[in-house]
Design a protein around this nucleic acid. Structure first.
Length: 812
DNA sequence: AGCCCCGGTGAAGTC
DNA sequence: CACCGGGGCT
């Protein structure tokens, strides 16, 4: 076969694709044709005669893997492309763990816990330890556990780690280590792994079983890792181990696009590469094929504000293109209207499709005003992310049945559905079971299935109901290997009573829930009709071999290997990324895309709107504590800009509803940082009163940690006060505000505030607050209507109150 | 056991 | 504002 496809690459790209032996690092700027290089590199390997079974490619989403496989299939043939080991870290190593689960003491059909499951387990542990879940917030605890695992710290190591213990002590959570330990034990007992366990346990496997390590080293002779800048330590070690034998490791990344440090990703991995493989070969893809010169140059300028970065020179031969526009709006709703109007106009002027447009925002909550405006303009749109299909309650209920049938010891699923639909097994009963299970160190299922051994003091009726439940689940489990996923799934949906329960609910929500279940089932039907990849086939046979047939069971037959069963389906579902969950039909539809910037990673659109460019929103308020966090926000902004091919429009609003309050917003520092050579600002902003000096002062104010606005109460409520307090930014804010349209729509508290009283309030007055009771006014600052008072309440201490919200009553 | 109402609280990003 | 959990009532 000819090498014609390699001619579609520029010289650096081609070199990077053809340099197949030894360690390689490809630094790939945004839009530099990275995917193309990876595709051709893998195709090239296969054409050289490398068996696809010996190639491992780790991607960021399963969708990316699927698309790359399809492209490789076109180059070298579909059958061999299907044999490639390609997917996310989590899905690839989940598969390997299923092969090797018994070595670690897990069942092959182990369950994968999602975040909710994990939180559920943590809540129960807190109860057992008699700890307050307001102090030990499950999400915080889980974060802590997660970051420990991602740094390969086991509970035992954690409990011996003076630094960790000290941190926990000083944050008033001394039991964190014990919780971690109990949590791991609990998941193990339930035959479950959380997402981090998939990587952690892979590391354990490779560390403790040299023969297994050797097997996979030998198997994966060529390894490619995409988005290397977003890998964490645990992933780094896995890759390092696997590649140690043949050293044919190719990592691809862009430090400027590293946006997942918050969940443990480390640019350090890129830096380590040099240390680990001193003989590595580096390629830099610097030519951008995606965007106009204006966009490329502007984005370069933006990222140059970061200290931590590699030298890189991204350039393009594309046209100069349109200047970047900045739009200002008075409110978030107006921001939406301006964006929608601009999309409408561009569509007309350029004859563009809806799907050529994307609206990118920092947080999902911002989608609302955009949606509203798009609806008013009759512009079809679709939202990515947010509550996904699989997170809906009714879907989770059905999946819990599926999971429990696959793995009876899955405690979280059992808790979820043991009394749904209602079957008379209430909290009291369940609590008894939970206690018995904890006391005896077994799963909930073990207790239910062996009730008489545990002496729970249940009445005969309850015992009978539990018996029925156990029998039902067992019948589902029994069915699993012999029927296809659709048959089993459908049977469970009906027999469990869920369908009936939802069918009887004729409210619109009930109807929609019912339809969602049907949609899930039809998805399963599609799955049943799909074919396995060779790897899945191998795994299936392996698992079926491990099923023992009960000799007493006259009707039992060998499980069919050709059958696509429900447990197989479930293996896929828990590993889907949000992007993966979009269904294809919808994806191709001619609609404007709305998504967070994180979700937009790797995508491109002709016309991109980045909205909500305001301090405390983008950059996020949570990033203002450290330079590193702020730089990550800036990289995020860089990612947003570089999604665009033709036109970038940036918007911000002067006021916005947040937490139900109207708050004033200052333009983001990122707006200030824009190089004016490439940008058209709104007229009001180009005047002298909004010159650089004001911006610089503004910038200094925010970037100085010492001045980080802190109202003293310090109990985590700082955000609300800061954000909703227009007076907090002193003279700078007021000089900015001169240029903002006055906001007519003032806050409308549920009960009107006594304006006269607010105006006349003075220091020394005694006032009464609904919640805090009586207090004395110590200090008043700001000007009407944004007066802020410091009030000393006897029991609560000092509080800073915004008088237009606080509804104080005058006492003296 | 289940429903409803209240109040408290919280919204970054993800496999 | 929206969601959740707790408490109280039926």
């Amino acid at each position: 076969m000819s090498h014609h496809y390699l001619n579609e690459l520029n010289p650096v790209q081609r070199e990077a694709a053809m340099f197949t032996e030894g360690p390689v690092m490809i630094i790939a700027g945004a839009g530099s044709g990275k995917t193309r290089v990876l595709t051709y590199r893998i195709a090239h390997l296969m054409e050289k005669g490398v068996d696809p079974f010996n190639i491992l490619a780790l991607t960021f989403t399963n969708k990316a893997a699927r698309e790359m496989k399809a492209r490789i299939g076109k180059l070298v043939g579909e059958t061999s492309a299907k044999a490639l080991w390609m997917g996310t870290f989590h899905s690839i190593f989940a598969k390997i763990l299923r092969f090797e689960a018994d070595k670690l003491g897990y069942p092959k059909n182990f369950t994968i816990y999602d975040t909710d499951d994990s939180k559920g387990a943590i809540k129960e542990i807190l109860k057992g330890f008699n700890l307050d879940d307001k102090v030990y917030k499950p999400s915080l605890v889980l974060n802590r556990i997660s970051s420990a695992k991602n740094n390969l710290i086991s509970p035992r190591q954690y409990l011996n780690n003076p630094v960790a213990l000290e941190e926990d002590r000083s944050s008033q959570k001394p039991m964190m280590g014990q919780i971690f330990e109990a949590y791991n034990k609990r998941l193990f007992k339930a035959g479950a792994m959380d997402f981090d366990d998939l990587l952690f346990n892979t590391n354990v496997l490779l560390r403790d079983y040299p023969d297994v390590l050797l097997k996979y080293q030998d198997k994966f002779r060529y390894i490619v890792v995409d988005e290397y800048q977003d890998t964490n330590f645990s992933q780094y070690v896995i890759v390092k181990q696997l590649a140690a034998r043949f050293l044919n490791l190719c990592v691809v990344g862009d430090d400027a696009q590293s946006i997942y440090a918050f969940r443990g990703a480390s640019i350090q991995n890129i830096l380590n590469f040099e240390k680990d493989y001193p003989d590595y070969k580096e390629f830099k893809l610097e030519q951008n094929y995606r965007s106009t010169q204006t966009i490329v140059n502007l984005a370069n300028k933006v990222i140059s504000h970061n200290k931590d970065q590699f030298k890189k020179n991204v350039w393009t031969q594309n046209d100069e293109g349109d200047r970047v526009k900045v739009l200002r709006a008075a409110t978030d709703n107006e921001e939406g209207m301006k964006v929608a109007a601009s999309i409408f106009e561009t569509k007309m002027n350029r004859q563009a499709f809806n799907k050529a447009f994307a609206i990118l925002y920092r947080t999902n909550a911002q989608s609302r005003s955009m949606e509203e405006a798009l609806r008013k303009h009759n512009i079809p749109y679709r939202i990515y992310g947010g509550l996904s299909f699989y997170q809906r309650k009714e879907i989770k209920d059905v999946l819990a049945y599926f999971r429990l049938s696959t793995n009876n010891h899955d405690d979280e699923s059992l808790k979820r559905i043991v009394n749904y639909p209602a079957r008379g097994l209430g909290q009291t009963t369940i609590d008894k079971v939970i206690v018995a299970a904890a006391d005896n160190d077994v799963s909930l299922w073990t207790v239910l299935d062996n009730l008489k051994d545990f002496n729970l003091g249940l009445n005969a009726g309850t015992v009978a109901k539990i018996g029925e439940f156990v029998t039902m689940i067992k019948s589902f489990s029994h069915m699993l290997p012999y029927k296809d996923a659709f048959e089993t799934g459908n049977h469970i949906a009906i027999t469990s009573g869920i369908l009936k329960d939802l069918y009887s609910d004729k409210t619109p929500e009930g109807v929609s829930r019912y339809e969602n279940i049907q949609e899930l089932l039809s998805g399963i039907k599609d799955f049943v009709e799909s074919t396995r990849t060779p790897i899945e086939q191998e795994l299936k046979e392996d698992i079926n071999d491990s099923i023992t047939i009960d000799p007493e069971d006259l009707f039992a037959t060998e499980p069919e290997n050709s059958l696509r069963t429900l447990d197989e389906f479930m293996q896929d579902v828990s590993l889907l990324t949000d992007v993966d969950k979009q269904d294809d039909e919808e994806r191709d539809a001619d609609k404007v895309s709305l998504m967070t910037i994180h979700a937009a990673k790797g995508l491109e659109f002709p016309y991109v709107y980045v909205v909500g460019l305001e301090e405390n929103l983008f950059p996020s308020q949570m990033s203002l504590n450290s330079r590193a966090d702020l730089e990550e926000e800036r990289r995020l902004f860089y990612v947003a800009l570089t999604r665009a091919e033709k036109i970038v429009t940036l918007t911000y609003a002067s006021t916005r509803y947040r937490f139900g309050n109207l708050i004033y917003c200052e333009p983001s520092r990122f707006i200030n940082e824009l190089d004016k050579t490439y940008v058209d600002f709104p007229e009001e902003l180009s005047g002298t009163s909004f010159g650089d000096d004001v911006f610089d002062k503004f910038h200094d104010e925010f970037s100085s940690p010492a001045k980080k606005i802190n109202f003293g109460s310090g109990s985590g409520t700082g955000f609300k006060k800061t954000a909703s307090n227009p007076a907090s930014n002193s003279n700078i804010a007021s000089s900015l505000k001169k240029n903002l349209t006055p906001v007519k729509k003032q806050v409308t508290p549920s009960a009107p505030v006594d304006t006269e009283m607010v105006k006349n309030l003075k220091e020394g007055d005694i006032v009464e607050h609904e919640k805090f009771g009586k207090g004395k006014v110590i200090f008043i600052e700001g000007s009407f209507p944004n007066l802020k008072a410091t009030v000393h309440f006897g029991s609560t201490g000092e509080k800073q109150l915004l008088l237009k919200y606080a509804r104080l009553k005058m006492v003296s």
